[in-house]
C-alpha cells in the first residue's frame, strides 16, 4: 500500500490559484469560503496551517459578511448558512472567533429557524437537514445554542428518519450518507443521540462499504472518497466505526491520490479537487492514520481546535 503524500497535498492546496482555466477554479468563485474551509482545515490536519497568513484570511472573511450578519461565499455575495458555517469554522481554526460580532451572526441564524423547527438556508426558504446542521454547529461553536428552539430543531431532524435508520433531507426523503452526517452531527452536538437506533443505522452505514474498500452514499451507488467522511464520522458518533474494514478503506483513499501533483479525487484515476482532498485527508484522520491531527466527527474541525473552543487554551 502507498503512503499519504502529505507534502504534495500541501503544495496542491497552496497552488490551486495557479491552475488557470480549470473547471474547478471557474465554479468556485461563489463558494470560495467553502473552498477556504476545505483547504485550510486540510492544511491544519497536515500540520501546515502556519504556511498561511491568518490576518489576511481573517480580513477577507470579514469582508464576506453581509449586513444581516450572515456570510456570503465571497465578497459581495448573498449570505447563506452554508458559508456562514465555513466562516465560523475557519475563524475557529485560527483562534480568531473574537473578531466576530457574535450577536449579529446569532441573529442571522436564529431568524432562519422555521415554525416546525427546520432551518432555511437563506431568505429564499429552501429547507434541508443540511441547514439544521449548519445552524446548530455554528451556534454551538459560538456558544449560542440557547438562542434557537433546540427541542423543535431536534424534533424536525427526527421526523426525517427513514425506515433503514438513516436520515434524508426532508421527511420522507431517502437515506443519504451526507444527510445522515448532518443529522447525526446535529443530534450529537445537541446531546440527542438517543433518538437514533444506533444498531440499525450502524448496519446500514457499514453496508456502504463495497468490494473496492471505498464507501458509497446510498445502496447500489459508486464508492466516492467524500463518503469516507460522511459515513465514517457518522459511524464514530454512534460508536460503530469498528464495523467496517478500516484497512481496506485506507487503501481506497490512498489509491485516489495524485502522488505526482498532489490532491485527492473521488475515485482512483479521476481528477483531483480541493473538496475530495479535504474529505480524503479528514477520512484518514478519522481512521487514525499516522502523522495527521485528530478530527472531531461532529464539528468537522481538528480536535485541538474544538478543545480550545470549549475548554480554553489547552494547546498552542
Amino acid at each position: 500500500m502507498g503512503e499519504l503524500a502529505g507534502d504534495k497535498h500541501v503544495k496542491y492546496i497552496l497552488s490551486v490559484e495557479k491552475k488557470k482555466d480549470s473547471f474547478e477554479s471557474v465554479v468556485m468563485e461563489h463558494l470560495r469560503l467553502n473552498g477556504a474551509y476545505w483547504g485550510l482545515t486540510t492544511l491544519d490536519l497536515l500540520g501546515k496551517l502556519d504556511t498561511v497568513d491568518s490576518d489576511e484570511v481573517v480580513s477577507w472573511i470579514l469582508q464576506c459578511q453581509h449586513e444581516s450578519g450572515g456570510f456570503g461565499g465571497n465578497i459581495g455575495h448573498d449570505p447563506h448558512l452554508l458559508y456562514t458555517l465555513s466562516a465560523v469554522q475557519v475563524l475557529a481554526l485560527f483562534d480568531k472567533l473574537d473578531v466576530l460580532d457574535i450577536n449579529k451572526v446569532t441573529d442571522y441564524i436564529r431568524a432562519l429557524q422555521n415554525e416546525d423547527g427546520s432551518f432555511s438556508g437563506d431568505i429564499w426558504g429552501e429547507v434541508d437537514t443540511r441547514f439544521s446542521y449548519c445552524a446548530i454547529c455554528c451556534l454551538a461553536i459560538l456558544k449560542r445554542l440557547d438562542s434557537i428552539n433546540v427541542e423543535k430543531a431536534v424534533r424536525y431532524i427526527v421526523s426525517c428518519k427513514t425506515l433503514d435508520g438513516g436520515f434524508g433531507c426532508t421527511p420522507g426523503a431517502e437515506s443519504h450518507a451526507g444527510q445522515i452526517f448532518c443529522c447525526v452531527g446535529a443530534l450529537a452536538i445537541t446531546g440527542s443521540l438517543h433518538h437514533i437506533d444506533k444498531d440499525l443505522l450502524g448496519w446500514w452505514l457499514c453496508e456502504r462499504q463495497v468490494k473496492s474498500g471505498g464507501l458509497n452514499g446510498r445502496p447500489e451507488k459508486l464508492a466516492d472518497v467524500c463518503y469516507s467522511w460522511w459515513v465514517l464520522s457518522s459511524l464514530i458518533m454512534i460508536d460503530r466505526v469498528h464495523w467496517i474494514d478500516k484497512e481496506k478503506l485506507i487503501k481506497f483513499i490512498l489509491d485516489c491520490q495524485d502522488t505526482e501533483n498532489g490532491g485527492i479525487s473521488d475515485r482512483p484515476d479521476d481528477a483531483v479537487d480541493i473538496f475530495h482532498t479535504y474529505f480524503g485527508v479528514a477520512g484518514l484522520s478519522l481512521l487514525e492514520y499516522p502523522g495527521l491531527k485528530a478530527t472531531d466527527p461532529a464539528y468537522a474541525l481538528p480536535v485541538d481546535v474544538v478543545n480550545r473552543i470549549f475548554f480554553g487554551r489547552c494547546s498552542t
Binding site: 490559484e17 468563485e29 470560495r32 483547504g39 485550510l40 489576511e56 465571497n74 480541493i274
Partner: peptide
C-alpha cells in the same frame, strides 16, 4: 470586477467569458 481580497487564500482563475459575464 470581483474583489477577491488581498492575496487570496483560495485564489480563483477565471475564464474570459466567465469573468466578463460576472
Amino acid at each position: 470586477p470581483q474583489d477577491d481580497g488581498p492575496s487570496p487564500v483560495v485564489a480563483i482563475a477565471y475564464r474570459d467569458d466567465f469573468r466578463e459575464t460576472m
